[in-house]
Amino acid sequence: MASGKEIRTQIKSIKNTQKITRAMEMVAASKMRKAQERMRAARPYAEKIRNVIAHLRLSHPEYKHPFMIERETKRVGFIVISSDRGLCGGLNTNVLKLALNEIKTWSDKGADIDICTFGSKSLGFFKRLGSNIVSELSGLGDTPQADDLIGSVKIMLDAYDEGRLDRLFLVYNSFVNTMTQKPEIEQLLPLAGEEDEQLKHYWDYIYEPDAKDVLNDLMTRYIENQVYHGIVENQASEQSSRMVAMKSASDNAGKLIDELTLRYNKARQAAITQEISEIVAGAAAV
């Protein structure tokens, strides 16, 4: 049985850890609220632009944008969004596992893989793996700006434009609620367009000044927004996942402390009993 002093130092160190995890829990809780607000604020734009794209799909554009045309898949691009920091439960592991599974299915089909990472966790993971990372962005902070991502996304879009990529996926954690985050994979390009045969009438937009430029603009914005949306959701997921993880860590530390305190008291009592019996025995001998 460990001696009293040993147990005492152990309790002390666990208490210190508990203080840290509790502080992190509270920080994560307040950041989570802000991240969720940002996510909610970004939703209308995402919905509206998705509507426009849906309309566009139903129309019969005079100009077929390359983003809407399916090609034979020789090279696949993945945009993988993770957090910058750890200590957030299984969040990053889950999203990386999903990405890896999908990457494996594509490379089994003989496709090459290009990866674009957001967040230092996914960067580190794919670097260790020796994957072909074409662009990377980390340290976005708590308030990501839509224009921060333009560069990274452009690299992937340009690659697609030039035919170096034939498919583009986005992998991120979608925020279901505070307790659940679901890793999700989404095909960005080509735009999954179902040809709807039962359209009522034949129509197209007026494009000002011309169809190609407008569609280019719109598509770029759409993809950028999808990535931005992914990042914002991932951030809300990160904070809530961290909050939950830190809460359970604090709870566990509390449980450990209780156990150790009990053991410490027992050891102290045993030591006292022993001392008394020794004294009594000594007195009896005299």
Partner: peptide
């Protein structure tokens, strides 16, 4: 304000897409 100039849109405008 469009890139090509300012436009005023009334109800029942034909579908338009422009920067």
């Amino acid at each position: 304000p469009l890139v090509t100039g300012e436009v005023g849109i009334y109800p029942r405008h034909t579908p338009l897409l422009a920067p």
